[in-house]
Amino acid sequence: MAQIFSRGANAFARSSLVIGLLLPAGLFLTALKLDRSPLQTDQGVVLAQPVPFSHDHHTAVLGIHCGYCHTSVEKSAFAGLPPTETCMNCHKQIWKDSPTLEPVRASFRNNEPIQWNRVHDLPDYVYFNHSIHIAKGVGCETCHGPVNEMPLMYQAKSLQMQWCLDCHRAPEKFVRPKDEVYNMDWEWGSDVDPLEEGKKLVEAYDIRPQDTCSTCHR
């Protein structure tokens, strides 16, 4: 009786064993990696905007405070986006003929909002609140990165749940003195132990971040 399989079938059978194990594992790891990559999170992606507004220029160069434009950051969930009138406080006189700023002037003239593209967009099932984070000593920079060095705005962190939990489970690693929340260059001095100081602040500010589902999801 003739052989059903040729000799080459042995190699095929052996390699299929290896591929059968490696391929699913590889696919699985790739899937995990993709899920945490900027492809999925938009981390580091610069979105096109109607006006190329530079946070770098307005804050680091001119020294304008975050709160000048994001007025509701201390008292509401939403940090607030400035109305066109806020831009015009200065730009009615400064760069008033600049073609780049024409969308701003048009918005002011026609009473039409400027349609910015949202950079930090959490899923609708996440109920993040800016005010409590500011009140408990979480700096702007902790979540938004070095905005004062961004000529064009991008999302510096992944904003994934794992990233939120990193802090909710160990706030002492991220908290800072309340007076320094708006300071983009702040860090603990080299003469102190950041973790010890952080623990003191967690105690002093009565920081009790929950990591239950309903803390952020409702």
């Binding site: 391929l23 699913p24 594992a25 899937a31 993709l34 899923p123 609708d124």
Partner: peptide, 22 residues
């Protein structure tokens, strides 16, 4: 099963649930 599961996982990374934008 392993192959089917990993193929499903790959699909899951690309989908954007409706609850994301309610």
């Amino acid at each position: 099963y392993a192959l089917a599961l990993s193929a499903l996982l790959l699909l899951a990374t690309a989908c954007r649930q409706d609850m994301h934008d309610q």
